[in-house]
Computed example of a mutant assay.
Amino acid sequence: MFEYHGWITIREKPAGDDDDVRLRRIVDDLRLRIAETASPYLLDLRWMNGEPFLHLGGHANHRSTDVTDLFAHVAAVAPGSYGLLHIRDDEDPGHENEVRVLRLARGEVTHHTEPLLSPCVPKLEQA
């Protein structure tokens, strides 16, 4: 089982003074990448109050690298972006009983254990 829920605020650079033309180009390129993903799950990129946001979520039988690759891609093309991706993957060796969090900040994606939901047994489910 591979369950994930996440969001990204897309920014060109950490300073917060994005060039509108370059940011729109980044968003347009991300739209193309999302369209090529062909996922049946939530992949929603939209502008809200003048800023672009990406929301994603899904629940598949097996792990897919599409969502983690997308997080890494955003880090590379828009290093001012930030966001979180919560993943529960019962096929992840050493992390089968954890909810993992990918944190995107300043062009880097780091991996963490989510202490509020881990260990999944007994916090989320009974043994």
Rank of each mutant, 00 (worst) to 15 (best):
L32A: 10
I26S: 00
A127C: 06
H73F: 10
A75S: 07
V77K: 07
V74T: 04
A127K: 07
E3W: 11
L45A: 06
L23V: 09
R46Y: 11
V67M: 09
D18W: 11
A105G: 02
H111V: 14
Y41C: 14
N97Y: 04
N61Q: 13
Y82H: 15
R22I: 15
D20Y: 07
Y41D: 15
A15V: 06
L30C: 01
D44Y: 13
T37I: 14
A38V: 10
V109F: 02
G57N: 03
H62D: 13
R22M: 11
G94M: 10
A78M: 05
E12H: 04
A75E: 03
A78Q: 07
I26W: 04
R31L: 01
N61Y: 11
P122Y: 10
S39K: 02
H111W: 08
G16T: 06
P40A: 08
R24I: 03
H111D: 13
G83Y: 01
R25T: 15
E36V: 03
P115H: 12
R88N: 05
T113R: 13
M1F: 12
P119M: 06
D17E: 14
R106A: 13
E108Y: 02
R88I: 08
S118N: 09
L45N: 06
E114L: 06
L117F: 15
T68N: 05
G94L: 09
R22S: 12
P79F: 05
H73C: 04
L102N: 04
L84E: 15
H59N: 15
S118H: 09
A15R: 09
Q126K: 12
R100T: 11
R46Q: 14
R24M: 11
D89W: 01
R24V: 05
P115T: 14
H112Y: 10
W47G: 03
A75F: 05
P122A: 12
A60L: 14
R11K: 06
R33V: 01
E108I: 13
L116A: 15
E12C: 00
R100D: 03
V99K: 02
D18N: 11
L102S: 02
A105T: 09
L42E: 08
E91S: 12
D18A: 08
R24H: 12
W7N: 07
L54E: 02
D29Y: 00
D19Y: 09
D66M: 09
N61F: 11
A127T: 09
D44S: 13
V109L: 02
R11E: 01
L42I: 09
P115A: 07
F2P: 05
